[in-house]
């Protein structure tokens, strides 16, 4: 059944206000949406990140569900232990209800420093959903590059300078890397596409095994974009095919939307100050390179989705 906002609005919020994420934080929107999508008891493990420091600072917690943080790179490992404890207690009969497990981390805690713990936990088959709130750089420490930072983006450790025009490497395709773990459910989405996101959270939590959702989420501080456009910019990411909405269910790829009019990537680049230098004449080859990569990846994705 398609999700309906009026019905969802009747649910109890589990990620409460009073958190200290920036005004207009895309990750805050996604936290709310994820927690509104959840049905039944859930335990959350979170990596060190903006939503960690902003929503769990003693004595204040925005979380109305059991929640644990222990370090930056180990959220999936931590939830492995919690899930194993749950299995032990279920076997003993001390717990009789179904509990779901979610691990969350940013792109640092997922693509980079936390990748090993994630890969291990997925391979071991723990029943948990890992959500990556991917804003394409280490925003919590002040906008440093990550493996998710796109080609050409300015960050404080891949700055655009007189010689070097921002990040020199393409981002890695983590969603594909996770799909290669051959787990039951893998998807990409954004909080602008709230119905897509919430549906994916529910699907992911329903599978018997590990699942992963890579959520592109805006950080207007890092992206140097307008705070009020925090959601619109995510729409552009999808409409330019920079961030296609798709899922991989038991190995089968599925595109989750019909693209009416594929916009040129410059529409995604233009509103973001992190790409400002790419608008210069001399950097047009970089824009062309980005467009070419997007086109290639889009064709590859369409081919994968058409295979079924």
């Amino acid at each position: 059944m398609a999700l309906n906002l009026k019905e969802i609005a009747k649910k109890e919020e589990l990620f409460m206000p009073g958190h200290r994420l920036c005004a207009g934080c895309g990750t805050a929107v996604l936290m709310r949406q994820v927690m509104l999508a959840v049905e039944g008891p859930v335990v959350v493990s979170m990596a060190t990140s903006c939503p960690f420091v902003s929503a769990a600072t003693y004595p204040y917690s925005a979380w109305k569900v059991p929640w644990i943080h222990s370090a930056f790179e180990n959220s999936p490992a931590t939830i492995s232990g919690v899930e194993a404890a749950y299995k032990a207690l279920r076997k003993k009969g001390s717990i009789n209800q179904e509990i779901k497990f979610i691990s969350m981390a940013g792109d640092g805690g997922t693509y980079d420093i936390g990748f090993q713990a994630l890969s291990g936990a997925l391979e071991r088959g723990h029943r948990f959903l890992h959500i990556c709130y991917n804003n394409e750089a280490y925003m919590n420490t002040g906008i440093q590059r990550s493996g998710a930072t796109p080609l050409g983006a300015h960050t404080t450790t891949s700055p655009a300078g007189k010689l070097i025009p921002g990040k020199r490497e393409f981002r890695k395709d983590l969603t594909a890397i996770i799909a290669a773990h051959d787990i039951p459910y893998v998807a990409q989405t954004t909080p602008f596409h709230w119905r897509d996101l919430m549906t994916k959270v529910q699907k992911a939590l329903a599978v018997d095994g590990p699942s992963f959702i890579n959520v592109l989420t805006s950080c207007h501080r890092g992206w140097r974009s307008d705070m009020k456009d925090a959601m619109q910019i995510l729409k552009l990411a999808v409409d330019t095919c920079y961030w296609p909405l798709y899922e991989v269910v038991n190995g089968k790829y599925k595109l989750n939307y019909k693209l009416r009019n594929k916009l040129p990537v410059i529409e995604w680049i233009r509103p973001q100050g992190r790409f400002a230098h790419l608008l210069k004449e001399e950097n047009q080859p970089i824009v062309a390179q980005i467009q070419q990569k997007i086109d290639e990846n889009w064709e590859k994705l369409l081919a994968k989705c058409a295979l079924d």
């Binding site: 420091v53 003693y58 929640w67 644990i68």
Partner: peptide, 8 residues
Amino acid sequence: PVTLGACA
């Protein structure tokens, strides 16, 4: 529900 490992 408890929050464990918050920052201080």
